[in-house]
Design a protein around this nucleic acid. Structure first.
Length: 572
RNA sequence: CGGGGUGUGGCGUAGUUUGGUAGCGCGCUUGGUUUGGGACCAAGAGGUCGGGAGUUCAAAUCUCCCCACCCCGACCA
């Protein structure tokens, strides 16, 4: 391919709309363009990256026994009514009506369609296991699309669904996918970690996320530097050990704390450590208000609270809702709360040992000091409700955990019979007995993986693509395209490369070398091959590697072999 | 959805406070010179100033309404 035949609109300046690195670089490198919030055009180079990722995914899905098919994007509401998700999914689903007024949606996911297909076509355990997948667009009307391709409203996803006759079969399918995912992300040249995850609203009880390690990632994860434990921080259990020493309980006292609303304010006003503060947060869970107590320096783990209460929806209470209870925001506390309201009080286990603490007095500008559990307030349920932090013990081996940030690019679930039961997807087993098929669901965000790769691998000058997913592995140019001799050698080498099967882009533009070098760095081709003065004087071609900056010279007839060898070693 | 912000040629922006009819850099076109890290000279093209309504002799600038986009939060296989 020649640059003069392509469309590669690179940008010198950073578009004002982008402040995520990957978004900026993908725009500047001429790979993507925004059409609307969260909706993007993939330009030729971006499209090539996506196709390379898809190809790796395809190969690994096939290797694991997956079979590709293609489900429709436009889906009838009827199928979603069968699982009840038409009403549950909410405003995140793009909905539309056809000319007859019938309801449809643009598929945000495809469990309904695949389960429907299965229920129509597969009847016997003898046809199992079955692993069906597709690579297709997904549509989610996110409340707030952001970070460019990272969280779009239209995006490309690979989704595979496993069908097994029993739990053992599901375990095998799940492990196959776990292994396949590890291979996919390794082959994409990414540093990643598979972590235990919360299964969330999709249901199921066993789940892993694949996180690309990047400081800019939205998710936080914990991992053990000694054993193989790793987990989304939402899921990391916090070990609780009852404290040995028990402080002498002081006298409960009301003290004025004017203007001190946050834990830090209160702690510094009273000259105390934040660990001596009892943080009381009101949440609305499935429409009901509850209170969660944690130590002042801790964060409430909302997922743990949600799971403990077996609820589906949780949000922090707003000032209006607090007002209705007559509790001033910033001064909430458990003392006397029972007498005023019927809210459920959850206490993090650590608060059991929080003696002589400071807590809001439920009146404006006042806190209590010397607050003690049992004596001054009662908790309905104690449990693990806080977010784990660096240094908390590993749940497997007790070593201090480390914390990292990551970008979720893959997620695998055991769905079991949630959808098969709802949609009557049953099979006949060996005894001729009808039973719901056991399902698993496995997703990879393809476009997000592209963005994650950039997020993880770039420098001041631009993107540094891993070889396996680079838009082209090699860019070739003459330092002066006007010089007939140099241009002639470049042309010759180009044909030679094409003949040798090298994935090469020939920058044949009549631009000054600086322009072409800058573009090459920005776009991030792994190898840059330049025909310059050394060609005329010594018959040598220059090869520069994007990732290391290393430069070597080779004779014209050696270049192709050198590139092939080095590139293939970089892929593994 | 709550809070904050921004909309001016393709990109980045000045001008808005104090109304007087739009400027700069990059990019683009043509000609010439140039060719190892985003060249130079010359001549050009390109703007309903996000949209609508209003105030005014006069609106990018003031008022009202709407829209889009961005950021924080909430939300999220």
């Amino acid at each position: 391919m020649r640059v003069t035949q392509m469309l590669i609109p690179t940008l010198r300046e950073v578009p004002a709309e982008a402040d995520t690195i990957s978004h900026q670089l993908l725009l500047r490198a001429g790979m993507v363009r925004k059409v609307a919030a969260g909706i993007y055009t993939l330009l030729p180079l971006g499209n090539r990256v996506v196709r390379k990722i898809e190809e790796i995914v395809r190969e690994e899905m096939d290797r694991a026994g997956g079979v590709e098919l293609l489900l429709p994007i436009v889906q009838p509401a009827e199928l979603w009514h069968q699982t009840g998700r038409w009403d549950v999914y909410g405003p995140e689903m793009f909905r539309l009506k056809d000319r007859h007024g019938r309801d449809f949606c643009l598929g945000p996911t495809h469990e309904e369609l695949i389960t429907y297909l299965f229920s129509q076509e597969v009847k016997s355990y003898r046809q199992l296991p079955l692993l069906l997948y597709q690579i297709n667009n997904k549509y989610r009307d996110e409340r707030r699309p952001r970070f460019g391709l990272m969280r779009g409203r239209e995006f490309i996803m690979k989704d595979l669904y496993s069908f097994d006759k029993d739990e053992d079969g599901l375990a095998v399918s799940y492990q196959k996918m776990y292994d396949a995912y590890s291979r996919v992300f390794s082959r994409c040249g990414l540093r990643f970690r598979a972590v235990e995850a919360d299964a969330g609203a999709i249901g199921g009880d066993h789940s892993h996320e694949f996180m690309v390690i990047a400081d800019t990632g939205e998710a936080e994860l914990t991992y053990c530097p000694v054993c193989d434990y790793a987990s989304n921080v939402e899921k990391t259990p916090c070990h609780y050990q009852a404290s040995e020493e028990k402080e002498e309980a002081g006298i409960l006292q009301l003290v004025a704390t004017p203007g001190a609303r946050t834990v830090e304010d209160v702690a510094s006003y009273l000259k105390l450590d934040p660990t001596k503060v009892l943080k009381s947060l009101f949440y609305k869970v499935d429409g009901k208000l509850i209170v969660v107590l944690v130590r002042g320096d801790r964060l409430v783990n909302e997922v743990k609270v949600l799971n403990y209460l077996n609820a589906t929806h949780l949000e922090i209470a707003d000032e209006r809702e607090m007002d209705e209870l007559g509790i001033p925001m910033g001064f909430a506390g458990p003392v006397g709360l029972r007498e005023r309201t019927a809210v459920t009080i959850l206490g993090d286990l650590e608060t059991k040992d929080l003696y002589n603490a400071v807590a809001g007095a439920n009146q404006k500008e006042y806190h209590y000091i010397n607050v003690n559990p049992g004596r001054d307030y009662q908790v309905d349920y104690y449990g693990d409700f806080r977010v784990a932090v660096e240094g908390d013990p590993c749940p497997h081996c007790g070593t201090g955990l480390k914390v990292q940030r990551g970008i979720e690019v893959g997620h695998i679930f055991k769905l079991r019979t949630k959808y098969s039961e709802a949609m009557g997807a049953t099979i006949l087993d060996e005894q001729g007995k009808e039973r719901p098929v056991i399902m698993g669901c496995y997703g990879i965000g393809v476009t997000r993986t592209m963005a994650a790769a950039v997020e993880q691998s770039h420098d001041q000058d631009g993107i540094i693509w891993p070889v396996s997913i680079a838009p082209f592995e090699v860019v070739l140019m003459a330092v002066n395209q006007r010089d007939p001799q140099l241009a002639g050698y470049a042309e010759e080498l180009y044909h030679h490369f094409v003949g040798a099967g090298i994935d090469v882009l020939f920058d044949d533009r009549n631009e000054r070398p600086g322009v072409k070098f800058k573009d090459a760095d920005l776009i991030g081709y792994p190898a840059r091959v330049v025909i310059g003065k050394k060609m005329l004087s010594d018959g040598l071609v220059e090869i520069k590697w994007r990732s290391s900056g290393e430069i070597t010279y080779k004779k014209m007839d050696e270049v192709a072999a050198y590139l092939q060898e080095t590139l293939s070693s970089m892929k593994s």
